[in-house]
Design a binder for these strands. Structure first.
Lengths: 261, 261
DNA sequence: TTTAACATCTTGTCTGACAAATTTAGCGCA
DNA sequence: TGCGCTAAATTTGTCAGACAAGATGTTAAA
């Protein structure tokens, strides 16, 4: 009655358990980076499962970026393994947007502070260019949402810490979705854009001058105002959200609209 | 010469092609949210491939958060599709740890602020319990890293914004690895733990008292000190990192160690 | 009408086989 | 010995068929 195999506790998903245990083993360093892990047959014997399940498990790790497989050669721990943060795309509504902004505020404030301290000349140039792009887009009758996000991204890049750009990029994806909904609010557009331009200018000046505290303060002010602007048209936003649900194809470069940023 | 199957162009990865085409079909709206997609056998016939490949393809989509499968029922387009942030795990070194801490600092400070304003009684209780757990772990001779991270996580939960816990959890995975490396630094342990406990207490008191600014300030102080403590043993850390590279098996629950948090 | 047993369907897992690509071993040859 | 080529062994990718586990729908009985 000797059992050499690591007994899998029976649970909902066998392949999932195996994937988890393999992932743990890799992250625990059982096989170093780039190392070849045992053959599918060997792993099947080790875990007491069939090759199918091993393949499903490895498939999960491969999709997760933890391993790569080469036919005829084997499966290898990825040279630069990745971990992934997955987030359900919420129903775009005021509440979820506010929650995202709540997270972004401290990040952007800190990014502005770091940018003031660390920016290179070329990074500063890119921030300036992004501001010009916003102007041009607005004058061309576009919403300028993309350009606005690019402006903030340029600041994050100037912080010279890849994690800031990674997280902010991540959240941009559905902030973009959400903001797009508000951009037809023509009535508020003029007043908004003046404010936005002034606030952007303040951030840029502080960064260019290397004043970290001023940059952080300017960014905080800008984001607080942005949230206030967003709250100003909640009913309109929610209506449009409801209308847009289920539409299969949304053209992504339509003109006009008030941009709360 | 009639071919009812959609011919798969032969390329590097057959299952990958199928996954791509399925993904396209879903995003094109062929099957709406929550809809059941054809059985694996039917898809196999449609694409002219075996069930194995269909399963691999669906596995990819499942891992991508695009579909969910229920045994006995079928595979369904996900109700709430997800986006994922994938990030390469850097070589564990002082620099990368510092970069992560740089990102965490503003997040944790803001989380502490929000927690002070929004915490429920049960959430406050969990924070208290986490502090007790740290004490017990340390007295038991453990590093208390897990418990320490749990303490910070409890604070993030009390902020009542899921994005904070999501991002912090995501980055905890690095930190856990990196911090583990430093915990054999026995000499610094006693002095560190006294500091850490005092700082934790200050955060907890501010949150319990509902003083948002005090909570933010206490958290900022704690994290600044944590980083300083981490920097205090850089050579030792780097040596250990180098030594650990490629080591096959690292027991993950060893006792003792100085915890910079 | 409600409930329980049953038949059917679908995904999860197992087994065995072959194809395709890579790695390794062997061998001849200089 | 050292080098280049060929052939064998390995390993992942794909195919095929089968059964198990769980879900769904139908039918019969109370």
């Amino acid at each position: 009655m000797s059992e050499d195999t690591e007994q899998p506790s029976r649970g909902p998903q066998l392949s999932e358990q195996v994937a988890q245990r393999l992932s743990d083993a890799i992250q625990a360093g059982e096989w170093g980076r780039g190392a070849r892990l045992p053959t599918e047959a060997a792993l099947g014997e080790r875990f007491g499962i069939s090759r199918s399940v091993v393949r499903e498990a490895i498939s999960m790790l491969r999709n997760g970026g933890l391993v790569t497989s080469r036919r005829g050669s084997g499966s290898f721990v990825a040279e630069s393994p990745t971990v992934s943060l997955r987030l359900a795309i919420p129903d775009p509504g005021l509440q979820s947007v506010v929650e995202v902004l709540e997270l972004r505020r401290p990040l952007e404030v800190e990014a502005a502070r770091l940018a003031a301290e660390r920016h290179t000349p070329s990074q500063l140039r890119r921030i300036r260019n992004a501001m010009v792009d916003i102007d041009e887009a607005v004058e061309a009758g576009l919403s300028g949402v993309d350009q606005d996000l690019a402006f903030h991204r340029a600041i994050a890049e100037a912080a010279n810490n890849a994690h800031f750009t990674a997280v902010l990029d991540f959240y941009n994806r559905f902030l973009h979705h959400a903001i797009r909904v508000t951009r037809t609010n023509e009535s508020l557009r003029e007043a908004f854009m003046q404010q936005v331009v002034a606030e952007h200018q303040a951030i840029l000046d502080a960064i260019a001058g290397g004043d970290a505290d001023a940059a952080a303060c300017a960014a905080a002010t800008h984001l607080a105002h942005a949230e206030a602007r967003l709250r100003q048209a909640p009913t309109d936003l929610l209506e449009r959200v409801e209308a847009q649900r289920g539409s299969t194809s949304t053209s992504s470069t339509e003109p006009t609209g008030g941009n709360p940023r």
